[in-house]
Computed example of a mutant assay.
Amino acid sequence: MKKTAIALAISGLALASVAQAAPQANTFYAGAKAGWASFHDGLNQFEDQAEAMGTLRNSVTYGVFGGYQITDNFAVELGYDDFGRAKIRELGKTVAKHTNHGAHLSLKASYPILSDLDAYARVGAALVRSDYKGEAVERDHKLQTSAVFAGGLEYAIMPSLALRVEYQWLNNVGKKVNSFSTDYRPDIGSVTAGLSYRFGQGVAAAPEIITKKFAFSSDVLFDFNKSSLKNGGSEALDGMTAEVANSGLANPNYNVAGYTDRIGSDAYNQKLSEKRAETVANYLVSKGVDQANVTAVGYGKANPVTGSNCDTVNGRKALIACLAPDRRVEVAVQGAKTVTM
């Protein structure tokens, strides 16, 4: 019984892990994010021009995204971001500003770290509009493609809602060349946190413990007073194992109980019931059931189902026929099954 409880607990945990995995294949998701962006490279040239000049590299960034989960661990994602802005300052006053926004398309690959936590990476391209304006810079804009690289962690708060933390790198944003700037193409790194809603996930799939009971007349499985399977007995047991296999139970446990009628001594009936239960258990193991998942117990003439119905029956043959329901083998099959609510 203790082994059965442990096995069922393990089965339940395994099914729970499956239920909390990454988004299901062939589903969509959408979300929003916000964080902090920082410009890298390209700004030093302005700071070097004069002591009084400086730059502000950091700003807020935000965006929306949506994706299609092709497989459990592979998706294609489309997003639109305000990538952030940089400012050039002189004597404490902003004299020029560079802002960026645009759409990006990327492929996203995920790897499960825990049952509800994935690490992921994205690689793709962004179509970025860069706007330049200010006192010392001619008002202008550029529309140019930049490479996008990102990596992060995604945690499933529930099957339909996930939290992600991400670092994104936008390579060579825009291109500005004039007397004030020389080949100005900065990179932008950003750290964001976001939430995504996964469509079609439903409520968490929950493991349910199910017990199926089978009762076999000993006269079907055995000859009278015998404990070896007779012709046709194996076919009855094969029907049971086929039904269990098609029921979707994970790692089921088989509890086999043998019973006899009241004819004969208690010791003889106890021994016969044990042998018959063991015969059935051994047959199940021979058909591929894990031996650790099978228990066999004999109960002798205990728990008769005929009650007092046969008390007035005369003659041995008539009594044997009347007590036939007491001669039986009962099999309780118990296992976990995932039920989506």
Score class of each variant (00 low, 15 high):
A119T: 12
L170I: 10
A121N: 10
S110H: 10
D140I: 04
E166R: 04
L117R: 00
M158P: 00
N172V: 00
A125N: 12
G174Y: 06
G151L: 08
Y167I: 05
A119E: 07
P159N: 03
D116V: 01
V128C: 09
D116E: 09
R139K: 15
D140H: 11
V165E: 08
L114S: 13
R129Y: 01
D131P: 05
E135L: 11
R139C: 00
V123L: 15
Y120C: 00
S160A: 13
G134V: 10
S110W: 05
I113T: 02
V165S: 14
Y111R: 05
E138I: 11
A109F: 13
S130W: 00
G124Y: 12
E166F: 03
L127M: 14
D131K: 15
A162Q: 08
V173S: 05
Q168G: 09
Y111M: 08
V137R: 02
A125E: 14
E138L: 12
Y167D: 02
Y132N: 01
Q144I: 09
F149L: 15
E138A: 14
A109S: 14
Y132S: 01
A147P: 05
A150P: 01
F149Y: 15
S160K: 12
G124N: 05
T145E: 04
S146F: 06
Y132I: 03
L114K: 14
K133Q: 13
V148K: 11
R164F: 15
S130Y: 01
L117S: 04
L143P: 00
A126Q: 05
V137D: 01
L143K: 12
L127F: 13
R164C: 07
G152V: 03
L143S: 12
S110V: 07
L163R: 03
A109K: 12
L163E: 07
L163I: 02
A136N: 14
E154V: 04
Q144M: 11
Y111D: 02
Q144P: 04
E138P: 02
L127D: 13
L163V: 08
K142Q: 11
G174V: 03
S115H: 12
D118V: 00
L114E: 15
N171T: 10
Y111K: 07
L153Q: 06
N172Y: 02
I113K: 01
R139D: 14
Q168P: 03
A121W: 07
G152F: 10
V165T: 14
E138T: 15
G152S: 07
R164S: 10
L163P: 07
A162E: 08
A162S: 13
I113C: 01
K175M: 07
L143T: 12
Y167C: 06
A156P: 01
A125D: 11
A147T: 10
E154H: 08
G152E: 11
G151E: 09
V173F: 00
G124D: 09
Y167G: 04
K142T: 10
E154W: 03
H141P: 04
V173R: 02
R139M: 04
I113S: 06
G152Q: 09
A109D: 06
